[in-house]
Each structure stands twice: as C-alpha cells, then as structure tokens.
C-alpha cells in the first residue's frame, strides 16, 4: 500500500469538503473492495476519507411503500433487518449472500453500488427494483446511474447518502457464484413493480444491465415456465476461464427462472 492521509469526518458536509478539496482523495466505506485494491498498489489515493462516522449515511427505515437504506449500511444489517425482510425479502436474501460473513460485517451497500463492480450483487437489486440513489447533491434514477465497468453517474467527490427502494409486488434474486471468488458470475434480480417487470443482471456483462428478453417474457406471465426457451444474446457478455459468454447467457435464463421461483 502507498502512503496516504487518513480522515474520519463527523458529518456529510465535512466528508464532502475533504473529497472535493483533493481530486486524488478516495472515500472509504466498508473497504472490502478498496483495501484489497490499495494493498495490491492498484490505486494511490492521496487521502482516504473514512465515512464510518458520518451519521447522515446510516439507518434503515420503511414507510409506506418505500424502503430507505443509508449508504453506510452494512450487508449484515440489511440481511438481518426484520423491516427489510418483510417489505422486500429478496433484498435481505441478496444481502445475506454477499461475500462471506466477515465481509458482510464490514461491506456496505453504498460502497458496493458506488464501486459498481460488474460482479457485485447490489447493483442488480438497485436496478431491478427501480431504486432512487440520493447523493449529497441530487437524486439519480437507477436507470441513469450505472454506466458500465466500475463507472457510475456519480461526479468526482459526490457521495451516495441513501437509497430508496419502492416496494415491489414481488421480487427474487438468484446467483451463480464464481466458484473461486464467490462473486456473482451471473446474478439475476427479477421484480414485478408498479412500473412493470424489471430484470437486472449482474456478473454476466461488463456492468449490470436489464435483460429485455426476460422482462418481455415475464410481462406476459410472471412465472418460471414463461422463460422456457427464452434466450438472452451472449454478445457483449464476459468470457473468461470461469465461463464463456455463451454459458453466461444460458445461465441468465436459468438464474432468472430460479429468481422467479424464489419470488413466489
């Protein structure tokens, strides 16, 4: 790891100021991706801004048809939240299977979504559930947020404060983990929402994306059987020693069926 200055701001304003003051500063949330990156000397931030003491980023609440989750909410807290489990059980299921227990005890939803690792779980939920991303500057619709491999709509120094998830009629998530890293090789989040069926796929491509073929098939009937024979094109999907693009495309349909079955 290279040297850096460490900061632990006590408010959102202070955190934002630190990040804006230096373009080589990095925000540190749970650190489960950032620290491995720093250890391998793949990044050399001048300053690391720890968000753990920023009160505005914390907390889970459900009111009416909306679940609100603060950016600095750890996976374990989402997984164990009775409120989340009641409102969007698929979301707590997803959180309960990210990484391993020790990773879930530190990793946060804000860190995961802001990093937008193409194999992360949360982006699929955010996109499929049509969540809104609230930053310290604006709100961003999920459809406008993810920009491909590790890229998002966030500006430099902009921080995610919280997510609001509209409660869907039903939703489910199924993933095929990479056998080595246990990241999603293909993860499919299906949701029947007020604005129709939304299906988001993570792991299979260079970034999370909506699977139109699956959405179209489920729009007719939200059942696993309606996905029989539905093929998702493999063009543009990741291909590596763990799985070819063709295999990943096949798995998208398989996982979509399982997610639909899980949605009940």
């Amino acid at each position: 790891m290279y040297q850096f200055e460490f900061h632990r701001p006590k408010s959102l304003a202070e955190a934002a100021a630190l990040l804006e003051a230096n373009e080589d500063a990095k925000a540190l949330s749970g650190g489960q991706t950032l620290l491995p990156t720093l250890k391998q000397r793949l990044a050399s931030p001048s300053d690391v801004v720890d968000l753990s003491a920023v009160p505005e980023l914390k907390g889970i609440s459900v009111s009416g048809d909306t679940v609100t989750i603060g950016a600095f909410t750890r996976h374990v807290d989402v997984a164990k939240s009775a409120e989340v489990a009641k409102a969007i059980p698929a979301l707590s299921q997803l959180a309960a299977h990210i990484g391993d227990p020790a990773v879930r005890n530190r990793g946060t939803i804000g860190g995961s979504v802001a990093n937008n690792d193409p194999a992360a779980d949360y982006p699929s939920a955010v996109l499929a559930l049509n969540a809104t991303i609230h930053t310290n500057k604006r709100t961003i619709a999920a459809d406008d947020f993810f920009k491909g491999l590790f890229e998002t709509a966030l500006d430099a120094g902009e921080l995610i404060v919280k997510f609001t998830f509209p409660v869907p009629k039903r939703a489910g998530y199924a993933k095929f983990p990479n056998p080595a890293s246990r990241y999603a090789m293909v993860g499919v989040f299906v949701a029947e929402t007020a604005s129709g069926v939304r299906v988001a796929v993570t792991g299979a491509g260079p970034g999370v994306f909506r699977a139109k073929e699956i959405e179209a098939a489920l729009a007719g009937s939200f059942s696993a059987a309606s996905l029989d024979g539905v093929k998702v094109p493999s063009a543009g999907m990741n291909s590596d020693m763990h799985g070819s693009a063709e295999y990943r495309a096949h798995l998208v349909t398989v996982m979509a069926k399982r997610a639909v079955a899980a949605a009940g």
Binding site: P36, D50, N105
Partner: peptide, 25 residues
C-alpha cells in the same frame, strides 16, 4: 485478496478480516 480468513478477529464483537481493515479504522 481477502479470501482465506486466516486473519479473522472480532471488532466490537463481530468477525471481520483484519487484513482488509486499517488499524486507523
């Protein structure tokens, strides 16, 4: 790469990977 877990300790009662946590944190 934060995979093996040989470094797990408890911070405030919860298991975490101490190779993926800064001392200052």
């Amino acid at each position: 790469t934060s995979q093996c877990g040989a470094c797990v300790v408890h911070v405030d009662g919860q298991a975490i990977k101490s190779c993926t946590t800064l001392a200052v944190q």
